[in-house]
Design a binder for these strands. Sequence first.
DNA 1: GTACGTCGGTGCGGTGCCGTACAGAGTTGG
DNA 2: CCAACTCTGTACGGCACCGCACCGACGTAC
Lengths: 256, 256
Amino acid sequence: METAPSPEKRKYENLLLAALPAAERARLDPYLHFENMKSGLSITTPGEPIQNLYFPFDAVTSTVQEMSDGSSIESGLMGLEGLAGVQVWLRQTSTPSKTFVQIPGTGMRISTEDFIREVRDTSSPLNDLIAAYVHAFLVLTSLTAACNRLHTVDERLCRWLAMCYNRAGRREFPLRHEFLAQMLGVHRPTVSVAANMLQKAGLIQYQRGNLRILNPEGLIDGACECYSIMEAQVTSIYRQTRSEKKSPSEFRLRRA
Amino acid sequence: METAPSPEKRKYENLLLAALPAAERARLDPYLHFENMKSGLSITTPGEPIQNLYFPFDAVTSTVQEMSDGSSIESGLMGLEGLAGVQVWLRQTSTPSKTFVQIPGTGMRISTEDFIREVRDTSSPLNDLIAAYVHAFLVLTSLTAACNRLHTVDERLCRWLAMCYNRAGRREFPLRHEFLAQMLGVHRPTVSVAANMLQKAGLIQYQRGNLRILNPEGLIDGACECYSIMEAQVTSIYRQTRSEKKSPSEFRLRRA
DNA sequence: GTACGTCGGTGCGGTGCCGTACAGAGTTGG
DNA sequence: CCAACTCTGTACGGCACCGCACCGACGTAC
């Protein structure tokens, strides 16, 4: 199997940025600002203009759909493999979905104006990478649509935790059942039962809002097939560039 | 309310193409081939290269996710408001999802090579429109992810039929319960019960694989809120261009 | 300490859909 | 006109999750 990367190495990497030629990365450097992405930081809000885009390092962001009756559910999540705020790249100033930081961490921020001027409306090689990522995100969202209907809460919980672990690059992060329920589109007690099962099986460990992943492989085993397809799609973006440059595939994928 | 467009007028229109300046539309004309899009025509197949893109007129296409156990579910549908095969625009040669013609009709075909050379890799104004449509399709797919989990089969059936009606531009088209079940991600008998309810309520009429929509407003009333958000997103693409050119908004939207 | 708020575990009746089976109604072909 | 097939309606036990309620464990403030 692959060896897990050291946390220090992972901490300051975004796969899109890492796949850029050094010269282009240097050109964009003045517009990229290192940021501590705190939990709950809003990236897109329905009806409001998108102010910044984010290249996450070890932060994880979620796109959720909220219904008028208060129920909500996640339709996509992204981390180091992507760019939060791709709607700007698609020539939009706002979007009806909500996107925010789910698991706190670090990342690079670029303002909408800088992004449009220096990336979107130029011939930056980053555009090709973003196009591929938008496609991967569309695939991920499509599969989420299927997964939400066809698979059980237990399977989806395993998939979700495994994918978060891959993106956060660490075993422990803050996470409440209430919050998980909103992501999975189920009620809180349903999550409690499912999470408790995983805890008893020795896969995870809970303690008042803090989750610790004990056995990532076990989670993958418990997840539905969607896990493999989603993660394979993401890694395929970076497969072409791997031979050209240093391997950026510290992105973990198991059982693909 | 709005008056329904005459079928003849609707029959040869795709909103993306209609929104183009006349000169650009004329420039692309040699590459666009009128086609009778028959039921089941495959547009994207997992693992295989995408050969053609389609601008539907009154045909409706579906993107579905298929699981290894044989179950399947739709993650997005598109018709006259979009372009089937946008993955090519996103620099992909293939995609893991399956896209095919759901309701037969007409449309314009363009080969992948022609599209890349004459649209994607040029500064055609069509690129801006497609970007906006890709965003709308992403929003639609995201909402489908939520809808599939949070809403009942009855609500989703109403939404689906109403959206198909908007795109097909006619009241009658071939449709079997078996097929609807695959779209909604439920079992066939579940669809039979739900469809029978709508029939008894006088909203639709079934006859051995042929569906006739009797009361579109009734379907919209029975649909979940997702209907309005999805359709509003699509019409918003064409709102900007409406003042500039002739109104292409024969796309029906009610209760938005 | 006591009081309070937050978070997680559990129980239980209700319901929506599953999974499967079967019957009837229409359609096609000899 | 009968046989075979396709499509739709219906029935029923089972299960996953809902919806709600309650309790206990832990953390924090005073």
